[in-house]
Write a protein that binds this DNA or RNA. Structure first.
Lengths: 193, 193
DNA sequence: TATATTATATAACATGCGTTATATAATATA
DNA sequence: TATATTATATAACGCATGTTATATAATATA
């Protein structure tokens, strides 16, 4: 009983997300969301108890988008796929990417620590990476993770040469992976003989 | 004629910098600075017209510190020195590093564009890099710049393994430089013969 | 020493924020 | 249809911010 709500949770999150996409997560305000929805702040408070609840929902939205981007990358090479998904996120949602990555939250660390063993396992099954010890694989993964974060930051901040598109990103990511792996193999060989 | 000012510009900037170091650039307020100085906000306005003027001075301070850090690195290998200076900044002033790098300001781009030709010139004089074309040198520099930014971000956000100190940072920076250069040389050779 | 000048502390103002109280409008149900 | 219930718009509250007006204190100079 009572009138229908003017907006769903999703619509409110959409509006908040649009603001975050341009101004960053910190610059979302209730009044801005209301303005974007063409209403007062009241409908927001019907859907969300307070700002913290809305923020949680927004973070979930961000995570869902990340996972969606990851699903869309399917070369079979998981750490290349993760790299490309992260790059797409950095490009398409750069303001949010900056806020998430550059804020010193535990999301990243948790994520890294959860993903590392999975990726190491995948690497063990990769014929291209045959013969490396676990320690060597970890070193390779770390280098690639560092490179991938650096590349994402540069994409988000528009620091790359103008002609850099998706293909160039792919190329440099793969090329650097080759560099790291090839060199690791050569070092291994040099030590052996 | 009149009483002496209680604080110099420098003292005000010091206080602001201390706040920024812990809370980030965005969380500096006139009242917080005043509190840290043990005074009211009035002396701040004697030294600076408004917030924007103080912010400019603070950015200059940040740049000076960066340059000081760079001066202290002197291996002769300029892009290694730049890398280490950036890493030290990321470690010692992580909140500010995040705000500077992750904000999409033009400082970074300007800096990169100014430094690139200088570094390329230095690379041309480096015997280790003999035989590479300018295009190849640019590719190597770009990869190292990406890696160095990634490493700095990870340092600032505490994402590296616990045992990572200055020596480990040096090692991984040099090791990756080797990877990139060695692989570039191998690719060159493969193409030739 | 007297005075003009300048620094300071205090308190106020305007603005923007999250949140909420309240009156009004809309609607499902009896 | 009448009513209870719920959504909405509006305006307000409390708080933090940058900035400024004002009264007071300090000091260089005549």
């Amino acid at each position: 009983m009572g009138p229908k709500a003017k907006f769903t949770k999703e619509q409110v999150i959409d509006a908040a997300f649009e603001i975050a996409q341009i101004e960053g997560l910190d610059n979302i305000t209730m009044r801005k969301i209301a303005e974007k929805l063409g209403s007062s702040v009241a409908p927001i408070y019907v859907n969300f108890q307070d700002t913290s609840e809305l923020t949680k929902a927004l973070i979930e939205r961000v995570i869902n988008i990340s996972q969606q981007l990851l699903k869309e990358e399917n070369t079979g090479n998981p750490f290349f796929d993760i790299g490309m998904a992260s790059l797409r996120f950095a490009k398409e949602y750069s303001a949010i990417f900056r806020d998430i990555v550059l804020r010193n939250n535990d999301h990243m660390k948790d994520y890294d620590e959860k993903m590392a063993p999975i990726l190491i396992q995948e690497m063990k099954n990769d014929p291209e990476l045959e013969g490396f010890t676990e320690k060597e694989l970890k070193e390779i993964l770390l280098k690639m993770r560092i490179f991938q974060i650096g590349l994402s930051v540069m994409v988000a901040n528009g620091l790359l040469p103008n002609n850099y598109g998706k293909q160039e990103l792919k190329d440099i990511l793969l090329s650097t992976a080759d560099d790291v792996i090839m060199s690791a193999r050569i070092r291994k060989r040099d030590l052996k003989y």
